[in-house]
Amino acid sequence: MKWFVTLKTTFKDKFFKSNLKKNFVDLEKGKQLYSTSHFQEAIIHLDNVVNYEFDSKAYELRASCFQKLEHHYKAIEDFDKVIEFNPLEFSYYYHRAVSKKAVFDFTGQIQDLHNCIHYYKKNKNIEVGLLKTFETDLINAGNHIEKLKYNISSFHHNSYLEIKALLNDCFYQIKKIRLKRNKIRTPFRQIKKKGYQL
Rank of each mutant, 00 (worst) to 15 (best):
L88W: 01
L88P: 02
F90W: 04
F90H: 04
F90S: 05
S91Q: 14
S91P: 02
Y92M: 08
Y92Q: 10
Y93W: 05
Y93N: 04
Y93A: 09
Y93C: 07
Y94A: 06
H95I: 13
H95D: 15
H95L: 15
R96S: 00
R96H: 00
V98A: 10
V98T: 14
K100S: 07
K100A: 09
K100R: 15
K101V: 08
K101H: 12
A102Y: 00
A102N: 15
A102C: 10
A102Q: 14
V103W: 07
V103Q: 11
V103N: 08
V103F: 08
F104V: 15
F104C: 15
D105I: 10
F106H: 12
F106L: 12
T107I: 08
G108N: 10
Q109F: 04
Q109S: 09
Q111M: 09
Q111W: 09
Q111V: 14
D112N: 13
D112M: 09
D112G: 05
L113T: 09
L113P: 03
L113Y: 12
C116M: 06
I117M: 04
I117P: 00
I117C: 06
H118E: 12
H118P: 01
Y120N: 11
Y120E: 06
K121I: 08
K121N: 11
K122A: 11
K122Q: 14
K122G: 12
N123F: 07
K124C: 06
K124F: 08
K124H: 10
N125E: 13
N125H: 12
N125G: 05
E127P: 00
V128G: 05
V128P: 01
G129L: 13
G129H: 12
L130G: 02
L130Y: 05
L130K: 06
L130C: 05
L130E: 00
L131S: 02
K132G: 02
K132E: 14
T133L: 07
T133Q: 04
T133I: 07
T133C: 02
T133E: 05
F134H: 02
E135Q: 07
E135W: 00
D137M: 05
D137R: 07
D137W: 03
L138W: 03
L138P: 00
I139P: 02
N140W: 06
N140E: 11
A141I: 02
H144R: 13
H144N: 09
H144Y: 14
I145M: 04
I145A: 00
